[in-house]
Simulated assay, not measured.
Amino acid sequence: MEQKKGIIILMSAKFSFSVVQSSRALYIFKKLKEQFPDTYIIMQKNEEEKIGLENLIQVKPIIPISGKFRLLKGMAFKLQMTLLSLWYIVSKRVDYVILRGYDTILLYPFLKILNIKIYMDYHGIYKHELNQQNRRLRAFFVGHIERLSLYLADRIIVVSGGVITQIQEYKDKCIYMPNGIDIHKINDTDHACSIKLPGNKKIIGFIGNWEQFMKVEDVCECLKYANNCIGVIIGRGYKADHIMNKYRDTENIIFTGRLQQEDVYSLLHKFDICILPYDKDDKHSLYPDYFSSRKAKEYIAAGKPVIVSDVEGRESWLIENQNCLLYESGNPKDLAEKIDILLNKEELYDKMCTNNRDLSKNFMWDTIIDQSGLIRDIQA
């Protein structure tokens, strides 16, 4: 049988196993390379991480993107990546390409002409996020680009059932592959984090980039009502400066900002309860089983009980009273009550810890990629 050749292309992500977008592509790349040795991956060079992988192609912008005119410089880098990707596609004579992001659209016509199979790694309608940020003009153009990309793709790799619901007309092209985790990396850490926590309080934790669909204020506000608890909120993102300024004088909240992955996992093991505060007013929350958050899987891999908001989009595999408790999104008093229930019902708490450790084994990257059928589809 002829050996398939492929290439994974990310225009906007730097090489890193700490960033979700980059790490997802890298884990898929490592797995595919086991089956198809002539598999390559192209992404932006990361000057801070020097990890070398065979067949990894890191691209350094000809014009540094930092400083003034970042938008224009970013567009120039996208063009640089597009031309370089085309050169590798032709020179390596690849059979398939995996693309992520609307900024790969210029590659599609050439791939169609060359009869190369296109896999689109799709994570939901980005236009919705832009509209909620009142970036209407950009949302208009992105919406048209996404529709064209979905139409031209031969297969669409989706991270959740909710994403399939968004694109029902293409459900027959979809390959289901949620985000995975490296359980061993999470649980084998012996790293000592520099963030010091009080030893006499229960730790209520939240980890991740603060996406627009996360209502981080619920975690902050609930600590006004939760007894003998301190909140540790890791990361930055949507409205981060506003939220951190609002609660900077609150004694029982610690904002760590962005941390190295080793520090994050070190803190995670000190959490008593982890929160998934999805926002009921976000459009993504309306699609059942839409979210496929890596943080949710990191929580359960560490054996932590979870409290998640009761939106339709929450992960369907988090079963109430088995893996989690539900609280009313936007109601921090209800969240505080659920924290109190978990901390005072030892049998329920211990059951969730055990159940979640067992459940996390379903989300190891090797398992997820094998079950997705992606390898069989490429071979076919």
Rank of each mutant, 00 (worst) to 15 (best):
I319Q: 12
I183T: 02
A153C: 05
K117P: 03
I319N: 08
I341A: 07
K171Y: 06
R258S: 14
L84P: 06
I273P: 00
L148K: 12
K345D: 15
N323V: 05
M75G: 10
K60C: 08
L83Q: 09
D241M: 10
D334Y: 04
K295H: 05
E169Q: 15
W210N: 02
N200E: 14
Y265D: 00
D188V: 06
I319V: 13
D121Y: 03
V158I: 11
Y40D: 01
S293Q: 08
S266A: 14
I116A: 02
D172Q: 14
K345I: 10
G124M: 01
I319G: 07
I42P: 01
N115A: 10
D121N: 10
S309L: 05
N209V: 15
H242R: 11
V94M: 03
L326M: 07
E2W: 11
G124E: 02
Q166W: 05
I207D: 06
V97E: 00
S91I: 14
D310N: 15
F291A: 03
E251V: 09
N46M: 10
R138Q: 15
L267V: 07
K361I: 08
N321Y: 12
L223A: 01
F255E: 04
C353E: 13
N134C: 11
H128N: 14
G143L: 03
L359M: 11
A226C: 07
D310P: 06
P64Q: 03
